[in-house]
Amino acid sequence: MKKFPLVVLMALLLNGCNDDTSEQKEFIDQVKASTTPKVEKIPELIEFEYFAYSAANLRSPFVAPQPEIIQNNLTQVKNCLHPDPQRVRQPLEKYPLDNLAMKGTIGSNGQTWALITATDATLHRVTVGSYLGTYDGRVSQVNSDYIELIELIPDGSGCWKERQTKLEMLEAAIDGAN
């Protein structure tokens, strides 16, 4: 008697596993019969127009020109101050003053040099007359804790103005020397 409910339950479960999909097949057939397939026309192709590129020998707009090229192409206004485009650039002129740091001074025979480090961790020595910075900064004076520069700043009208600037030694450099 205990097996009877189990047999009834098994019969009900097996009845649910019926493979009768005739209703679904009938619905699919009805939908296929009532719809008509519509295929759109293929659009006509537009004929390609050949264009001859004629600017191959001009400067590429995607490559930045060198600063020297720009400066050499500037028209110089007569009777006003401007940097010498023929002057050979010194190594520290490719760095802005913000990327340079004075670390100390050395000297002998009355000549004093300032020790300058750049952001690429290179050490350079400069003296009066040396150039550094991106604005044609010429060293005018070397002191034990700073150097004075005279920079040439464009005024927007084709001329340049002189500006006096200092590059001071950082306090950390003084503490590190002791």
Rank of each mutant, 00 (worst) to 15 (best):
M1Y: 08
N18H: 04
K78D: 15
I28Y: 07
G104P: 11
E162A: 07
A177G: 11
D84Q: 09
V7K: 06
H124W: 15
H124E: 04
S108K: 11
I174V: 15
A64Y: 08
L81Q: 11
T122N: 13
K94D: 08
L9I: 09
A172Q: 12
D20I: 02
E49F: 04
L167D: 05
Y146L: 11
L58P: 00
S60W: 02
V77E: 09
G129F: 04
F4W: 08
G133M: 03
E68P: 00
T21V: 12
N99I: 00
D19F: 02
N18K: 00
A64C: 01
T127P: 02
C17A: 14
V142Q: 03
N15F: 05
P5K: 02
F27C: 10
L152E: 07
K161I: 13
P61E: 09
V8P: 00
M10D: 03
V139D: 00
G110E: 03
D20C: 04
E93P: 07
E171A: 13
E68Y: 06
G129K: 01
K25W: 00
L9H: 03
L58H: 06
D155C: 09
Q141K: 15
G137R: 02
L14I: 09
I70V: 15
P65I: 14
A114V: 07
F48W: 04
S54R: 11
V7R: 04
I69E: 15
A55V: 07
C17V: 07
R163C: 06
V77A: 07
D175G: 01
E26Y: 04
V142T: 00
T21E: 08
